[in-house]
Design a protein around this nucleic acid. Structure first.
Length: 260
DNA sequence: CGTATAACCTGCGTGC
DNA sequence: TGCACGCAGGTTATAC
């Protein structure tokens, strides 16, 4: 599930629940989500420490521990989430880490599939991680967006999906953006003219704005996303039958009528 | 440089 | 009811 809009929602959860709070306890219910850190170490580094201002880049969520401490980094894979709970709420099946804060609330990192996880990073590691990512999709200016795509030989969808090009777009967002811009997902990125690139950037901005507000890519009937799970989906714009195939290994839905 | 594939891990729906 | 299989909004290593 989590693409940029979802992670932005988790950032708000972390801000509202955790900002300025002191960690009272850390319970690792499944160490399978820990990456490069042991439960013991995580607990030791967090307990009694105050959480700073959460920030996001692409699909990564970060929160600094104290002013000069390490940074807690979350990635949500395909099934992760972060909730703010009261301690008497029974844990969900896939709640993996629970962080108890002063003031009585708990942050719970939940993830069914454990494809990604939680790590504890120093400043150099954070810098390295962010350097490997392209600019955040929500903040990339049009000129830079056009430049990043204009040199790519491969399918435009592959470029949009590549986190080292632009950070934050996932499978649903890419299909939605391409559909709105009337661009076929397999079009070589560098074949797009200035007008098409401008259109893509504009659509990306609009799709992101709405999705961030919703906390997900909303499956509205007027959106492509609202039809992609139907076996006989129809384009809500032109009525043609939607097509589906694989582009760079991911299921890709598009409208043969609108997207050439 | 690019693409495709499998792998990581779990659960759900489908068809036999 | 059981079981094999394919599939899922992500990332990474590896082979071509």
């Amino acid at each position: 599930m989590p693409e940029l809009p979802d992670v932005e929602g988790f950032r708000r959860v972390l801000t509202q629940c955790g900002k300025g709070r002191t960690v009272e306890d850390v319970e690792v219910r499944d160490a399978g989500v820990l990456r490069g850190v042991t439960g013991k170490k995580l607990r030791q580094e967090l307990k009694g420490k105050r959480l700073g201002t959460a920030w996001r880049h692409g699909k990564w969520l970060f929160v600094p521990v104290e002013e000069d401490g390490p940074t807690l980094a979350f990635h949500f894979g395909m099934t992760g989430s972060l909730r703010c709970c009261s301690p008497d709420e029974p844990p969900e099946t896939h709640d993996r880490i629970s962080i108890t804060l002063d003031g009585g609330q708990e942050l719970r990192y939940c993830d069914q599939r454990k494809l990604q996880g939680v790590r504890l990073c120093d400043d150099a590691e954070i810098e390295h991680m962010v350097n490997d990512l392209g600019p955040d999709a929500r903040a990339v200016p049009r000129a830079e967006f056009e430049e990043l795509l204009s040199t790519r030989r491969g399918a435009v969808k592959s470029a949009l999906m590549d986190q080292s090009v632009i950070a934050g777009l996932g499978n649903l967002l890419c299909d939605e953006i391409l559909w709105r811009a009337r661009v076929h997902p397999r079009t070589p990125a560098r074949d797009l003219d200035a007008r098409a690139l401008r259109g893509l950037h504009t659509r990306m901005g609009r799709v992101l704005d709405t999705s961030v507000r919703a906390g997900c890519v909303p499956p509205r009937r007027s959106w492509l996303t609202g039809h992609r799970d139907e076996s006989d989906g129809v384009c809500p714009r032109c009525g043609q039958s939607l097509r589906s195939s694989r582009v760079s290994g991911r299921r890709t839905v598009w409208c043969p009528g609108c997207q050439n």
